[in-house]
C-alpha cells in the first residue's frame, strides 16, 4: 500500500495487519500476539502515514528510522513491512520456521531493511539515539522512531538513554511507549510498577504526549506535535489494550506469549473482520 493520511484506509490497513498477526502466529504455533496487537495502530500510522521511507530504496540515507525495541512484537513489524512492500507477503506464515526471513525476533541478517536486530529488551532507545545523532551531524532531516514496551522500561539502560536524550536535546528522536499494562508474568503494576510515567519522562527532559494508542487521528496529531517540538526529545505514552481487537485476548496476560489454537484463529479472524 502507498502512504496515505486517510483515516478509513489506515483503519482498513490496521484490520489487515491484525489478520496477518493472528494468521502468522497461529501458523507458527508460538509467538507473542498480545503485544503485537496492542501496537498495530502505532505501526500502521508510522509506516503508512508519518514516516518518510521508500520500500524500493531501503538504504536511502535520509529515510526515517524505525526500531522495534520490544522485539517480541515482531509479527506486527513483519506485517507492516510486508504490506509496505519491503518483504514478501506470501511468506508471512513461515514465521519462526527454520530458514524463514521472519525470525522469532527481528533479525537484520535475514531482512537487511530492518534498522535493528532486537529482542533483548532495553537497548533500542540508545541505538536510536546513535542514529539520531548521526542524522544531526549529517544535517539530515531523518527522524528516528523507537517503540518501547511498558515492561521494557524496567530495564536500566532505558533510563541511561532517557537521560542522554534529554541532556543532549536530541529532538529528532521519538519514543513511543506501548503502555498495554501487561508483561509476561502478569500486570505491570504487580510485577514492577512504572508509574507515574509522564512525570518520570518529563523529569528526564522529554516532551511527553499522552495519547490513545488505538486512535489513529490522535496518533497522527501526536506525531505532528512531536515533530514540531524543538530542543527536546518527545515520547508518546500510548495507552493501549494488550490483545486489542480479539475479545478473548484483550487484557489477558495469557496471550503475552501464547499462540492461538486453530479454532481461536478462526474466531479471532471473524471478530477482526
Amino acid at each position: 500500500m502507498t502512504r496515505t493520511s486517510d483515516l478509513s484506509e489506515l483503519q482498513a490497513m490496521a484490520r489487515t495487519v491484525r489478520r496477518d498477526i493472528i494468521e502468522m502466529i497461529g501458523a507458527a504455533k508460538s509467538g507473542h500476539p498480545g503485544g503485537s496487537l496492542s501496537a498495530v495502530e502505532i505501526l500502521v500510522t508510522l509506516y503508512f502515514d508519518v514516516m518518510k521511507h521508500d520500500p524500493a530504496n531501503p538504504a536511502w540515507p535520509q529515510r526515517d528510522r524505525f526500531i522495534l525495541s520490544k522485539g517480541h512484537a515482531a509479527p506486527v513489524l513483519y506485517s507492516v513491512m510486508a504490506e509496505s512492500g519491503y518483504t514478501p507477503k506470501d511468506q508471512l506464515n513461515t514465521l519462526r520456521r527454520i530458514g524463514s526471513i521472519y525470525q522469532g525476533h527481528p533479525d537484520r541478517r535475514f531482512i537487511p531493511a530492518l534498522e535493528a536486530s532486537t529482542g533483548s529488551l532495553g537497548v533500542g532507545l540508545s541505538l536510536g539515539l546513535g542514529m539520531a545523532e548521526a542524522a544531526k551531524l549529517d544535517k539530515s532531516p531523518s527522524r528516528t522512531y523507537v517503540v518501547l514496551g511498558d515492561g521494557e522500561i524496567q530495564e536500566g539502560q532505558i533510563w541511561e538513554a532517557a537521560m542522554y536524550a534529554g541532556f543532549h536535546k536530541v529532538d529528532n528522536i521519538v519514543a513511543i511507549l506501548d503502555n498495554n499494562r501487561i508483561q509476561l508474568d502478569g500486570w505491570v503494576k504487580d510485577i514492577m510498577a512504572i508509574e507515574p510515567l509522564a512525570e518520570k519522562w518529563a523529569a528526564f527532559g522529554w516532551h511527553v504526549i499522552e495519547v490513545d494508542g488505538h486512535d489513529i487521528v490522535a496518533l497522527q496529531a501526536a506525531f505532528a506535535e512531536a515533530e514540531a517540538t524543538k530542543g527536546k526529545p518527545s515520547i508518546l505514552i500510548a495507552h493501549t489494550v494488550k490483545g486489542k481487537g480479539v475479545s478473548f485476548m484483550e487484557n489477558n496476560p495469557k496471550y503475552h506469549g501464547v499462540a492461538p489454537t486453530k479454532e481461536e484463529v478462526e474466531l479471532a479472524l471473524k471478530e477482526i473482520g
Binding site: A116, S126, L127, G130, M131, A132, A134, Q157, E160
Partner: peptide
C-alpha cells in the same frame, strides 16, 4: 551500556 548502543547507532548510520 548506553554508550555502546549509541556507538552502534552511529556506526549503522
Amino acid at each position: 551500556a548506553n554508550m555502546v548502543s549509541i556507538g552502534a547507532g552511529l556506526a549503522s548510520s
